Simulated scan of single mutants.
Amino acid sequence: MLLSSIIHHTRGDFVRRLIAIALPITLQSIMFSSRGLVDVLMLGQLGEADIAAVGVASRAMFVTTIMLVGVTTGGALLTAQYWGAGNRQGVRESTALTWLVSTLFALLTIAFFVSFPAQIMGVTTDSQEVISLGVEYIVITSFSMLAVSCVSSMAVGLRAMHKPGLSTFFSGIGILSNVFLNWVLIFGNLGFPALGIKGAAIATVLSGAIEVATLFGYLYLSKHLLAFKFCDIKAAASIDKVVRFLKLS
Protein backbone atom coordinates (compact mmCIF):
# COMPACT_ATOMS: atom_id res chain seq x y z
CA MET A 1 0.00 0.00 0.00
CA LEU A 2 2.83 2.39 0.87
CA LEU A 3 4.65 1.56 -2.36
CA SER A 4 1.55 2.11 -4.47
CA SER A 5 0.96 5.44 -2.74
CA ILE A 6 4.53 6.53 -3.47
CA ILE A 7 4.20 5.52 -7.12
CA HIS A 8 0.86 7.36 -7.39
CA HIS A 9 2.20 10.65 -6.01
CA THR A 10 5.53 10.62 -7.88
CA ARG A 11 4.36 9.68 -11.34
CA GLY A 12 4.44 12.13 -14.21
CA ASP A 13 6.87 15.03 -13.98
CA PHE A 14 6.82 15.29 -10.16
CA VAL A 15 10.41 14.06 -9.71
CA ARG A 16 11.69 16.35 -12.46
CA ARG A 17 10.01 19.38 -10.89
CA LEU A 18 11.24 18.36 -7.43
CA ILE A 19 14.85 18.17 -8.63
CA ALA A 20 14.51 21.46 -10.52
CA ILE A 21 13.53 23.19 -7.26
CA ALA A 22 15.65 21.25 -4.77
CA LEU A 23 18.97 21.30 -6.64
CA PRO A 24 19.35 25.12 -6.82
CA ILE A 25 18.30 25.41 -3.16
CA THR A 26 20.94 22.86 -2.18
CA LEU A 27 23.61 24.65 -4.21
CA GLN A 28 22.76 28.00 -2.66
CA SER A 29 22.91 26.52 0.85
CA ILE A 30 26.38 25.21 0.05
CA MET A 31 27.41 28.65 -1.22
CA PHE A 32 26.10 30.34 1.93
CA SER A 33 28.27 28.12 4.11
CA SER A 34 31.37 28.09 1.89
CA ARG A 35 32.50 31.71 2.15
CA GLY A 36 34.57 31.10 5.26
CA LEU A 37 36.01 27.97 3.66
CA VAL A 38 37.20 30.00 0.67
CA ASP A 39 39.03 32.38 3.02
CA VAL A 40 40.64 29.50 4.93
CA LEU A 41 41.85 27.82 1.73
CA MET A 42 43.31 31.01 0.27
CA LEU A 43 44.91 32.12 3.54
CA GLY A 44 46.54 28.71 3.90
CA GLN A 45 49.66 30.04 2.18
CA LEU A 46 50.25 32.73 4.81
CA GLY A 47 50.48 31.01 8.20
CA GLU A 48 48.83 28.79 10.78
CA ALA A 49 47.70 31.71 12.97
CA ASP A 50 45.76 33.27 10.08
CA ILE A 51 44.06 29.97 9.29
CA ALA A 52 43.15 29.40 12.94
CA ALA A 53 41.79 32.94 13.32
CA VAL A 54 39.57 32.68 10.24
CA GLY A 55 38.48 29.19 11.28
CA VAL A 56 37.32 30.36 14.70
CA ALA A 57 35.67 33.51 13.33
CA SER A 58 33.96 31.55 10.56
CA ARG A 59 32.33 29.26 13.10
CA ALA A 60 30.66 32.23 14.78
CA MET A 61 29.68 33.71 11.41
CA PHE A 62 28.30 30.35 10.26
CA VAL A 63 26.08 30.05 13.35
CA THR A 64 24.64 33.54 12.86
CA THR A 65 24.18 32.90 9.13
CA ILE A 66 22.17 29.75 9.85
CA MET A 67 20.12 31.66 12.42
CA LEU A 68 19.49 34.44 9.89
CA VAL A 69 18.43 31.97 7.21
CA GLY A 70 16.17 30.40 9.85
CA VAL A 71 14.54 33.77 10.50
CA THR A 72 13.51 33.88 6.85
CA THR A 73 11.66 30.58 7.24
CA GLY A 74 8.61 32.49 8.43
CA GLY A 75 8.73 34.56 5.28
CA ALA A 76 9.03 31.43 3.16
CA LEU A 77 5.85 29.99 4.66
CA LEU A 78 3.88 33.21 4.25
CA THR A 79 5.10 33.82 0.71
CA ALA A 80 4.28 30.25 -0.35
CA GLN A 81 0.75 30.64 1.04
CA TYR A 82 0.19 33.90 -0.84
CA TRP A 83 1.66 32.49 -4.06
CA GLY A 84 -0.52 29.40 -3.84
CA ALA A 85 -3.58 31.59 -3.36
CA GLY A 86 -2.64 33.77 -6.34
CA ASN A 87 -2.25 36.85 -4.11
CA ARG A 88 0.55 38.73 -5.90
CA GLN A 89 0.42 41.74 -3.57
CA GLY A 90 0.67 39.40 -0.60
CA VAL A 91 3.78 37.84 -2.13
CA ARG A 92 5.38 41.26 -2.54
CA GLU A 93 4.48 42.39 0.99
CA SER A 94 5.62 39.16 2.65
CA THR A 95 8.96 39.46 0.84
CA ALA A 96 9.28 43.04 2.05
CA LEU A 97 8.49 41.94 5.61
CA THR A 98 11.05 39.12 5.38
CA TRP A 99 13.67 41.63 4.22
CA LEU A 100 12.79 44.06 7.02
CA VAL A 101 12.94 41.51 9.87
CA SER A 102 16.07 39.78 8.57
CA THR A 103 17.84 43.13 8.10
CA LEU A 104 17.02 44.14 11.69
CA PHE A 105 18.39 40.79 12.85
CA ALA A 106 21.54 41.36 10.77
CA LEU A 107 22.04 44.80 12.36
CA LEU A 108 21.74 43.26 15.83
CA THR A 109 24.30 40.64 14.84
CA ILE A 110 26.69 43.30 13.56
CA ALA A 111 26.34 45.27 16.81
CA PHE A 112 27.11 42.11 18.79
CA PHE A 113 30.21 41.21 16.76
CA VAL A 114 31.54 44.78 16.76
CA SER A 115 30.98 45.18 20.50
CA PHE A 116 32.37 41.83 21.70
CA PRO A 117 34.80 40.47 19.07
CA ALA A 118 37.51 39.41 21.54
CA GLN A 119 35.00 37.62 23.76
CA ILE A 120 33.56 35.75 20.76
CA MET A 121 37.01 34.66 19.62
CA GLY A 122 37.91 33.69 23.18
CA VAL A 123 35.12 31.13 23.36
CA THR A 124 37.11 28.54 21.39
CA THR A 125 40.76 29.68 21.70
CA ASP A 126 43.09 31.18 24.30
CA SER A 127 45.86 32.13 21.85
CA GLN A 128 46.29 35.90 21.96
CA GLU A 129 47.76 35.94 18.43
CA VAL A 130 44.76 34.09 17.03
CA ILE A 131 42.34 36.30 18.96
CA SER A 132 44.08 39.47 17.77
CA LEU A 133 43.96 38.39 14.12
CA GLY A 134 40.40 37.10 14.45
CA VAL A 135 39.08 40.31 16.02
CA GLU A 136 40.09 42.31 12.95
CA TYR A 137 38.57 39.72 10.64
CA ILE A 138 35.28 39.23 12.48
CA VAL A 139 34.57 42.95 12.92
CA ILE A 140 34.91 43.63 9.19
CA THR A 141 33.23 40.43 8.03
CA SER A 142 30.22 40.99 10.29
CA PHE A 143 28.97 43.65 7.87
CA SER A 144 28.50 40.92 5.24
CA MET A 145 25.48 39.82 7.31
CA LEU A 146 23.53 42.63 5.64
CA ALA A 147 24.20 40.98 2.28
CA VAL A 148 23.13 37.60 3.66
CA SER A 149 19.87 39.12 4.94
CA CYS A 150 19.10 40.73 1.58
CA VAL A 151 19.91 37.66 -0.50
CA SER A 152 18.19 35.14 1.79
CA SER A 153 15.01 37.25 2.02
CA MET A 154 14.76 37.40 -1.77
CA ALA A 155 15.69 33.72 -2.07
CA VAL A 156 12.64 32.60 -0.08
CA GLY A 157 10.37 34.59 -2.34
CA LEU A 158 11.93 33.14 -5.47
CA ARG A 159 11.67 29.62 -4.03
CA ALA A 160 7.97 30.14 -3.34
CA MET A 161 7.58 31.16 -6.99
CA HIS A 162 9.45 27.99 -8.05
CA LYS A 163 12.40 30.04 -9.35
CA PRO A 164 15.24 29.19 -6.92
CA GLY A 165 17.78 29.03 -9.73
CA LEU A 166 17.71 32.81 -10.07
CA SER A 167 19.02 33.53 -6.57
CA THR A 168 21.48 30.63 -6.89
CA PHE A 169 22.91 32.22 -10.04
CA PHE A 170 23.61 35.49 -8.26
CA SER A 171 25.05 33.63 -5.26
CA GLY A 172 27.47 32.07 -7.73
CA ILE A 173 28.47 35.57 -8.80
CA GLY A 174 29.10 36.39 -5.15
CA ILE A 175 31.33 33.34 -4.65
CA LEU A 176 33.36 34.02 -7.80
CA SER A 177 33.74 37.67 -6.76
CA ASN A 178 34.92 36.54 -3.34
CA VAL A 179 37.60 34.29 -4.84
CA PHE A 180 38.82 37.02 -7.20
CA LEU A 181 38.86 39.75 -4.55
CA ASN A 182 40.64 37.40 -2.12
CA TRP A 183 43.32 36.84 -4.75
CA VAL A 184 43.70 40.58 -5.21
CA LEU A 185 43.56 41.76 -1.59
CA ILE A 186 45.14 38.88 0.34
CA PHE A 187 48.22 38.55 -1.87
CA GLY A 188 48.44 42.11 -3.22
CA ASN A 189 47.83 41.45 -6.91
CA LEU A 190 46.95 44.02 -9.63
CA GLY A 191 48.88 46.73 -7.80
CA PHE A 192 46.93 46.46 -4.52
CA PRO A 193 48.75 46.11 -1.19
CA ALA A 194 48.90 42.62 0.36
CA LEU A 195 46.47 42.85 3.29
CA GLY A 196 46.44 39.21 4.40
CA ILE A 197 43.58 38.31 6.72
CA LYS A 198 42.22 41.86 6.60
CA GLY A 199 42.06 41.59 2.81
CA ALA A 200 40.05 38.37 3.12
CA ALA A 201 37.53 40.15 5.36
CA ILE A 202 37.22 43.11 3.00
CA ALA A 203 36.80 40.75 0.04
CA THR A 204 33.96 38.97 1.84
CA VAL A 205 32.10 42.23 2.43
CA LEU A 206 32.69 43.54 -1.11
CA SER A 207 31.63 40.27 -2.75
CA GLY A 208 28.45 40.32 -0.68
CA ALA A 209 27.76 43.86 -1.88
CA ILE A 210 28.31 42.78 -5.49
CA GLU A 211 25.90 39.87 -5.04
CA VAL A 212 23.21 42.14 -3.58
CA ALA A 213 23.73 44.82 -6.24
CA THR A 214 23.45 42.38 -9.14
CA LEU A 215 20.45 40.51 -7.68
CA PHE A 216 18.47 43.61 -6.72
CA GLY A 217 19.54 45.37 -9.93
CA TYR A 218 18.11 42.52 -11.99
CA LEU A 219 14.87 42.38 -9.99
CA TYR A 220 14.20 46.11 -10.17
CA LEU A 221 15.33 46.64 -13.76
CA SER A 222 13.13 43.74 -14.90
CA LYS A 223 10.27 45.03 -12.70
CA HIS A 224 10.02 41.65 -11.02
CA LEU A 225 7.10 40.87 -8.71
CA LEU A 226 9.49 40.76 -5.73
CA ALA A 227 10.86 44.25 -6.42
CA PHE A 228 9.04 45.74 -3.44
CA LYS A 229 8.79 49.45 -2.66
CA PHE A 230 8.64 51.47 0.55
CA CYS A 231 4.83 51.38 0.51
CA ASP A 232 5.01 47.56 0.55
CA ILE A 233 7.31 47.64 3.59
CA LYS A 234 4.97 50.07 5.32
CA ALA A 235 1.92 47.91 4.57
CA ALA A 236 3.65 44.74 5.77
CA ALA A 237 5.16 46.21 8.94
CA SER A 238 1.98 46.10 11.03
CA ILE A 239 2.16 44.65 14.53
CA ASP A 240 -0.13 41.72 13.71
CA LYS A 241 1.87 40.71 10.63
CA VAL A 242 5.21 41.04 12.41
CA VAL A 243 4.00 38.93 15.36
CA ARG A 244 2.67 36.26 12.99
CA PHE A 245 5.96 36.29 11.11
CA LEU A 246 8.02 35.88 14.30
CA LYS A 247 5.82 33.04 15.54
CA LEU A 248 6.36 31.16 12.29
CA SER A 249 10.10 31.88 12.30
Rank of each mutant, 00 (worst) to 15 (best):
V101M: 13
D126A: 10
L97H: 03
L97E: 02
T103V: 15
T95H: 02
V123T: 13
A118Y: 14
T103D: 05
L78F: 00
G74E: 08
D126R: 09
F105K: 00
W83L: 11
A85I: 07
F105P: 03
Q89V: 12
A80N: 04
D126L: 07
V135F: 00
R92K: 13
A118P: 06
V69R: 09
G74Q: 06
G86C: 06
T98M: 04
T98E: 02
V123Q: 01
E93D: 11
V101D: 05
I120Q: 07
T124V: 10
Y82D: 12
M121K: 08
E136C: 02
R92P: 05
T73Q: 12
T79G: 00
S102Y: 02
P117Q: 11
D126K: 08
S132G: 09
T73E: 12
E129H: 04
N87K: 10
G134A: 08
A111T: 09
W99A: 15
S94K: 05
F116Y: 15
T73P: 07
R92S: 04
V71G: 10
L133Q: 09
I131W: 05
T72G: 12
T124H: 13
V130C: 06
F112C: 15
T79R: 00
T103W: 08
T72P: 02
D126M: 03
L107H: 03
I131C: 08
L100H: 07
G74T: 12
L133M: 08
P117F: 13
Q119A: 14
V114F: 15
Q81G: 04
G84A: 04
T124A: 14
G90S: 03
G74D: 07
L108C: 15
S132F: 03
T72Q: 10
T72L: 06
V135E: 05
S102G: 06
M121Y: 02
A106S: 12
V114C: 14
G86A: 07
G122V: 10
V69S: 07
F113Y: 09
A106G: 03
T98K: 01
A85L: 10
I110F: 03
A76Y: 00
N87R: 11
I131V: 11
G122N: 07
F105I: 11
V71S: 09
P117E: 10
F105V: 15
I120M: 13
Q128K: 11
W99E: 08
G74A: 09
Q119D: 11
G84T: 07
V114W: 15
A76D: 00
L77W: 01
A111H: 07
P117A: 09
W83M: 11
Y82S: 12
G70D: 10
G122R: 06
N87M: 06
T73N: 13
G75N: 02
E136V: 08
I120P: 05
Q119F: 12
A111V: 13
T103I: 15
T103S: 14
Y82L: 10
R92T: 13
T109I: 14
V71E: 10
T125R: 02
A111L: 15
L104I: 14
